[in-house]
Amino acid sequence: METLLALVTGAMVAISVYLLLQRDLVRKIIGVVILSNGIHLLIFAVGRMTRAASPLIPSGEKYPPEVVANPLSQALILTAIVIGFGLLAFSLVLIYRLHESYQSADADVLIEATLGDE
């Protein structure tokens, strides 16, 4: 299972690198999204996959009675997803505004535009 996840992570990172190298800003952002999902998967995999119980501790106990799934990597991913969601929303609005201003979402056009004032 871990091998499969590792392969999927690798594929996602490869796709995202391809997209990040595109000039179109929207594709770049999609690349960032895929990269972040790939890395979430990576964290999930390094937390070790088990067919164990949910990480709940019965009341009165100090430790879970049996082997449980790792809750930490789930918590890390959840945090990362929320953060990533905020950043994604911001980037999309930024690109939308850029498109309004420059009538283009092409990185080259932006570079030309910013070099113009030198």
């Binding site: 800003l25 930024l94 690109i95 505004r97 850029l98 201003s101 420059y102 932006l110 535009a113 910013t114 004032d117």
Partner: peptide
């Protein structure tokens, strides 16, 4: 406009 282009 300049800020947006720099920010991206």
């Amino acid at each position: 406009d300049e800020q947006l282009a720099g920010a991206v």
